[in-house]
Amino acid sequence: MTTATVSRWDRFRESFFWYSFKRDKVAIASFAVLLLMVLAAIFAPLLAPTDPYDLAQINIMNSELPPVGMSGSDPAFPLGTDAQGRDLLSTILYGTRVSLMIGFGAVILQAFLGILFGLLAGYLGGKVDAILMRIADVQLSFSTLMVAIIVGAVFKASFGNLMFGEIAIYMLIFIIGVAEWPQIARTVRASVLAEKKKEYVDAAKVMGFGTRRIMFRHILPNTLSPIFVIATVQIANAIISEAALSFLGLGMPETQPSLGSLIKSGFDYIQSGSWWITLIPGLVLVVLVLVINLLGDWLRDVMNPRLYKG
């Protein structure tokens, strides 16, 4: 077992992937920032000075305190407080956690749907392909954000505010996952079409392997690198979509805020001069999305896959 891991590690260290990562300062910096934010989000309960979900720790007298460095600030709240007196640093740590959970969850769901439908469409071809890709085309032409807003609005209206607030996290994963599967399906289909013509697939067919086995055991592993590239970018898109939905009031409730709902609740106070409640979570959101996009750009250059060019 140990020898296997060691040799794998050696192989990784000698790979082109690691070589180009070491030489790209932007990629290293982006990865470091992303790792830091993910770790901070995972360990938010340990790192955060207060628990923003615990009403007993909130004092309304502390509301709208500015960040340290401005007059009237309190050193106990380094980034200031929001309108309800919650420590902004804590709400941001927890909010990043919620945003990342939804981002990753939505991409796992859309990868599942996209890979399944993309494989089916690409390998089976014919009617299956025509129907699935037509659906994908139509859904994409409506823009994923529009689809997500409409599905979110319908869910919110049918579940009611309270119920929607409780299950919002799962709802958002579902909404964004379903709204964005065509992106991955098209990429998978394009590379399946290329792989399908290769000799190893003919060989597998001649050996009498079943369609399912060829699709998942033989073709799928060879389409992983474009999936990897597009999934990275899709995480960033999912986080933005979640923030947009939350900003419209169709996402996370203020009691369990994501970065988007923090921006939304702070926006009501921007005219009274409390800019930090909305702009600090906004800055965190932009940095998070930016480093993921930069990593995605770098991955695209390194892996250079056959991406769907629409």
Binding site: A244, L279, N293, L294
Partner: peptide, 14 residues
């Protein structure tokens, strides 16, 4: 690249 990473409502707020 930075512009693509900024959601439209955040640009508006800034």
């Amino acid at each position: 690249t930075v512009g693509i990473s900024i959601p439209v409502f955040l640009t508006a707020i800034v």
